[in-house]
C-alpha cells in the first residue's frame, strides 16, 4: 500500500540553509548537503529545497547545491523558488532534482505549466499554491479543540481561499479550488499547498484548506504551513486527506525527528514507511 510521505523542507538562500539545522551536531549546519544527508539517514521520504535567493546573479548557486546533494542522497528531491523558464527547469533536473515546484510563474502564465509537463513529464512538475482565507471574520478552529472541530466553518460561513504569489505578498484573487483544478488539467503532477494564514505560526495546518483541495483534485497534495506539533501532521493526513505532510522548523530544531514522527503516525494507524 502507498504510504503517506513525511517531507522536510529547507529554505536555501545564496547556497546556505536559512537558520540552519540545529538538532544534531553538524560540521556545518548551514550546508544544505549535510542537512540533506541527515534527513536521508533519518528516513525522510522526500526532501524539498526552497530557494529564496533574491539576487539574480546568485541564482546559479542552487544548481551547485542540487548537484552536490544528488551525489550524496538517494531520495526524491524537489526544488522550488524563482523558476520561470523551461531552461530553469532543465538545469535543475540535469543537476539532479527530481521535481521542480512552480508558483508565481504558473499564475502569471498557466500555459507554462502545460509546456513544462509536456516537455518533462507531469511527474516532475509540482505546482506550489499559497492560499489565504478570503474573509478575516472566521479563522479555523484551534487544534486543541479538535474534538469539536468539524473542519468546516459554521454552515453560514463557507470558508474560501485566494491564491497569493511573490512569496505571499500579492493576492491574485483566484479561488484556490478553481486554481487547483486548473493546474491539474494543465498537467501538474502534484500540488504543494501552503496556508499563508498558518505558515510560521506552529498552530497546525489549515485542515479545511487541505481537505477542500485534496478531495477536489485527482493528483497528490502535500500539506504545508503551520506544523508545530506531531498531532498536526496526523490531522493533515487524516482529516485533511493530504498525501504528504511537509514541515520545516519542527524538524530542523529537533522538536521532532522523522523516526519519532513516523512511529507516532504508525501507532495511530497511518501507513508510513519505517
Amino acid at each position: 500500500m502507498l504510504t503517506k510521505r513525511i517531507i522536510p523542507c529547507l529554505d536555501v538562500k545564496d547556497g546556505r540553509v536559512v537558520k540552519g539545522v540545529s538538532f544534531i551536531k553538524l560540521r556545518d549546519a548551514g550546508d544544505p548537503v549535510e542537512c540533506a544527508i541527515v534527513y536521508e539517514e533519518q528516513g525522510a521520504d522526500e526532501l524539498v529545497f526552497l530557494d529564496i535567493t533574491a539576487s539574480h546573479e546568485n541564482r546559479k548557486i542552487i544548481i551547485n547545491v542540487v548537484e552536490r546533494t544528488a551525489a550524496h542522497v538517494s531520495m526524491p528531491l524537489t526544488v522550488g523558488g524563482g523558476i520561470r523558464t523551461l531552461d530553469d527547469i532543465r538545469e535543475l533536473l540535469n543537476a539532479g532534482a527530481d521535481k521542480v515546484s512552480i508558483n508565481t510563474a504558473a499564475v502569471d502564465n498557466p500555459e507554462f505549466v502545460k509546456e513544462a509537463s509536456l516537455k518533462f513529464g507531469s511527474q516532475c512538475i509540482v505546482v506550489a499554491i499559497d492560499a489565504k482565507r478570503r474573509s478575516a471574520t472566521w479563522t479555523p478552529g484551534d487544534v486543541s479543540e479538535i474534538d469539536t472541530f468539524k473542519f468546516f466553518a459554521p454552515s453560514s460561513v463557507v470558508p474560501e481561499w485566494d491564491i497569493y504569489t511573490h512569496g505571499g505578498r500579492i493576492n491574485r484573487e483566484i479561488d484556490v479550488i478553481e486554481w487547483a483544478k486548473r493546474v491539474e488539467e494543465l498537467g501538474a503532477g502534484e500540488i504543494l499547498l501552503t496556508s499563508m494564514d498558518r505558515d510560521g505560526t506552529k498552530e497546525g495546518y489549515d485542515v479545511d484548506l487541505i481537505y477542500e483541495v485534496s478531495t477536489k483534485v485527482n493528483i497528490p497534495v502535500i500539506a504545508s504551513g503551520g506544523a508545530g506539533e506531531i498531532d498536526h501532521l496526523y490531522f493533515a493526513l487524516t482529516e485533511g486527506k493530504a498525501d504528504a505532510a511537509l514541515a520545516a522548523s519542527i524538524f530542523h530544531f529537533g522538536e521532532l525527528t522523522i523516526p519519532e514522527t513516523k512511529r507516532f503516525l504508525k501507532e495511530k494507524g497511518i501507513n508510513v514507511r519505517m
Binding site: R5, D45, T215, N218, I219, D243
Partner: peptide, 14 residues
C-alpha cells in the same frame, strides 16, 4: 468517495 485514489501513483509503496 472522499478517498480518491490519486494518479500519478507517487511515493513509497511496497
Amino acid at each position: 468517495s472522499d478517498d480518491i485514489i490519486k494518479v500519478p501513483h507517487m511515493g513509497w509503496n511496497n
